[in-house]
Design a protein around this nucleic acid. Sequence first.
DNA 1: CTGAAAGCGCTTACAG
DNA 2: CTGAAAGCGCTTACAG
Lengths: 351, 351
Amino acid sequence: MGKTSITIKEIARQLNISKSTVSRALRDSSEISEHTRERVIELARRLNYSPNPIALSLLKNRTQTIGIIVPDIDNPFFSMAIGGVEDVAYSRGYHVMIYQSHDSYERECIDARHIAARRADGLIVSVASKSPDHSHFEELQESDIPVVFFDRISEQVQTHKVLVNDYEGAFEGTEHLIMQGCRRIAHISGPMGLNISRNRFNGYKDALAKHNLPLRDEWVVSADYSQSDGAERAYQLMALRERPDAIFAASDRIAIGVHWVLRQLGYRMPQDVALLGFSDLSISALLDPPLSSVAQPSFEMGRQAAELLLELIENKNTLDFETRVLKTNLVVRGSTLKIINSGDPASAEIL
Amino acid sequence: MGKTSITIKEIARQLNISKSTVSRALRDSSEISEHTRERVIELARRLNYSPNPIALSLLKNRTQTIGIIVPDIDNPFFSMAIGGVEDVAYSRGYHVMIYQSHDSYERECIDARHIAARRADGLIVSVASKSPDHSHFEELQESDIPVVFFDRISEQVQTHKVLVNDYEGAFEGTEHLIMQGCRRIAHISGPMGLNISRNRFNGYKDALAKHNLPLRDEWVVSADYSQSDGAERAYQLMALRERPDAIFAASDRIAIGVHWVLRQLGYRMPQDVALLGFSDLSISALLDPPLSSVAQPSFEMGRQAAELLLELIENKNTLDFETRVLKTNLVVRGSTLKIINSGDPASAEIL
DNA sequence: CTGAAAGCGCTTACAG
DNA sequence: CTGAAAGCGCTTACAG
């Protein structure tokens, strides 16, 4: 037990040549005799040699590792995005270390420092909703660790960002509710400290305005992006003297909580209350009635964030940062579809 | 931009002492004068010094990193378990690198090699259903990287393992269906290459035998642990001349696919067909009717796997391996509850 | 109590 | 084409 991994030194010893030569045989093709090179390669293979990445890291001051901080790994939106990050990272020889902030400012700071201490080459983050300030990310940038944001971005920090058109998505979703005949449309927003919450709220607000519908204070409530908060707000809204006939939730997690409460209370969707979510998690199509939602390309967001980060890492081009805005896509299902018209996509789909 | 991180050498230079002394001041308390020690500590703090973990790793041949391979990160069972692993790992100063095998043998081998190449200190794994052989894990063990399995274990590899009592859970679940009056109970098993699939199937089989119910070939079908496979099998079962009056699915993912199909086809649960899953994912309670399921303590499984791994890493005690068996817990909800009796837990719960 | 030296595994000018 | 040396950032015997 414990045959310690084989090193370049060992190969050199067995072949009776110097470490330098072995090293060169393993890298360059030029500046080495074909003969020695073959001998080295062959022995290395036979010994199952693999270079010690730790040593390389020390030398190059690069770890081939990127960090990612998300609020919550078991939110399917984020686990999908992580999938996208991994997809490009691995294909380019990088590793991914995943951190969860649990939406806590303190935890996010600790994670960021950790990443700096571990000398990651870069960081991708979707910020915690409770973070009042993002200078912990600026500190990373100052020590030459590039940072890229996706979805929940920091306006304070200058860098590449990957977003969806939250405003337009929310606008379009709200208009869809209006087209379905809803007139008393409530909104459960996310925490207003987050860009995504503000933009979705504004889309909602402007769609109402465009159609001369009232924006009533008691129909706009704020929640954390969680089922339990969604459920609480649903009770609150349905208890109002003047009930909404539609609820636009700022996320599917919130909407799922609402969905559950509406069913418990015996409201029919969409006849009594139409319900629209945001993100289109895969489970949303499985609810009964299936949930309509504004779909976000989560995997692709992760991919693009990773691509932008690697560009920063490899080219150190810290000038002109880019903000990529991907498109949302309204997915209409049973929870909002009152009027059957052939123009609308209709049925829930599984698989 | 680019203030390169500060090193022990820099502190030594500024204080006009040797690197050795600085290093000692930062570690030992003995063997150093109180005075120098204070000066070093104070300057280190002021400069925001943090030791380069890469250098330490090279020295100690330890990376303070553990790997985890799961089939699929966006399966909530696994993301929960990962949460448990992180919980103990971080509290003990370790980092976690997460890999997905996507249930592919090839990918699992690559991941394992990667982990070895990155010199992780240890590995936690839940095996891919398509892996015919597990010697890639034995190779890790031979290079002194301990491996611990959870849930989907390898019988071939000798090491610590963390399981639940799949057999008893399945037995109890099947008995519950029988108590509800079901007599034609079908089973959708997972891939039979996996221990969990075999044990759950055996629990089902023996419960039927105990109650003198028939085990009919056409009522036992096998599926991947996925919604789409579950949906296909549901069609297959309900197309039978003699239909089952209950379906016990080997996982909630499978059950969710079945649930969707049953609803599409207009079957009522549980009156026409009772449906029971396994794992109790958090979404299962939200279906309509809510899904009964055999709950597994996924977070705790991750925790315990991590504890066992760290023990192996830190004590190198490679003798007498332990197999921990945690308890499942039958959660009865609307999808199986025909007979209201006060002894049974009943209502779906959210939050 | 402190410093000079060796070494972890590797690469890469610098000489030959 | 090949080897000896220096160095990445740190620790730890070995001498004083």
